[in-house]
Computed example of a mutant assay.
Amino acid sequence: MKFPSLPRLALATTLAFHLAQPAAASCGNTSAGFESWKADFARQAQKSGVKKKGLQALSQAKYATRTIAADRNQKSFKYSLDKFMQVRGANTIVAQGRKRKARNPGFYATLERQYGVPAGVLISIHGMETAFGGFMGDSQVVSAITTLAYDCRRSEFFIPHAIGALKLVDQGTLTTATLGAKHGELGHTQFLPGNALTYGVDATGDGKVDFYNVTDALASTANFLRQKGWKPGQGYQEGQPNFAVIQQWNAASVYQKAIAIMAARIDG
């Protein structure tokens, strides 16, 4: 029997290995390839632990044109800090935030005892993200996040969040009809699905994590910050230890600074 030489054998083994693997889903910049991408991504999702309900949600996802338009046209984060705070209504957030803290001091004190995060930080995030739950989005979360996972612009960033969203469907936390922001963020403080899966807290004790319930949402937000390294009792202004943790919540520098400034005014 004639055996192939070692280099030829190694090459044959390598080719066989790659042929046996499912092809990676290819990103795209238009809606044209979305359906074929979903079929490929379903295999990747299944390997990552997504089950029947999640895979069904993926199959039903629609290419979200409004999400793509929003992702290509993010202007507010290019503003100066003063302009950003004006546009986002910082004074209103602070005024309403102080009232919210005064109405329910025990709730915020409990969160601070448990996670070390002051009320002002949680209230500022809540106000900035959804005007205290006044508007939590009008885009279908699963369609939005899978569209961003498919889109070539930031595919690698959004793929884990798309997997997370499908797992949340499996758990019953999301459905294909659940609405959130145009980038797939959900609930009172606009968690990306992967973070929701990892840091979600059932603070009400009803057996499920509901990001559209303010108690669960704010406890989950506090848990996220604590798990990202929040140091209880330390400062959170720019240059202080906990400012780096606020940076983990949102990558835009004007957002980070606005949260820290508003939080100090609410807590002051």
Score class of each variant (00 low, 15 high):
residue 83 K to W: 02
residue 91 N to M: 04
residue 74 Q to F: 01
residue 86 Q to D: 10
residue 112 E to N: 07
residue 114 Q to V: 01
residue 92 T to Y: 02
residue 117 V to A: 05
residue 100 R to V: 08
residue 115 Y to K: 09
residue 126 H to S: 07
residue 78 K to V: 01
residue 105 P to V: 10
residue 83 K to V: 08
residue 116 G to A: 08
residue 88 R to C: 00
residue 93 I to A: 06
residue 85 M to E: 14
residue 85 M to F: 00
residue 82 D to K: 14
residue 112 E to D: 06
residue 74 Q to E: 06
residue 108 Y to L: 06
residue 84 F to L: 02
residue 70 A to E: 15
residue 105 P to D: 01
residue 102 A to W: 04
residue 87 V to H: 12
residue 104 N to I: 10
residue 106 G to L: 02
residue 93 I to T: 15
residue 103 R to E: 14
residue 82 D to P: 00
residue 92 T to C: 03
residue 108 Y to F: 13
residue 124 S to C: 02
residue 88 R to Y: 07
residue 89 G to A: 07
residue 128 M to F: 07
residue 92 T to H: 08
residue 108 Y to C: 05
residue 98 R to N: 09
residue 70 A to D: 15
residue 72 R to M: 02
residue 117 V to D: 06
residue 74 Q to M: 01
residue 122 L to A: 14
residue 112 E to K: 11
residue 86 Q to E: 13
residue 96 Q to K: 15
residue 94 V to G: 06
residue 107 F to R: 10
residue 110 T to C: 00
residue 104 N to T: 14
residue 85 M to P: 00
residue 109 A to K: 15
residue 96 Q to G: 15
residue 88 R to V: 01
residue 117 V to G: 03
residue 89 G to F: 03
residue 73 N to Y: 08
residue 82 D to S: 12
residue 127 G to A: 06
residue 103 R to T: 14
residue 118 P to F: 12
residue 79 Y to M: 09
residue 126 H to T: 13
residue 89 G to V: 08
residue 126 H to V: 04
residue 117 V to I: 09
residue 118 P to A: 12
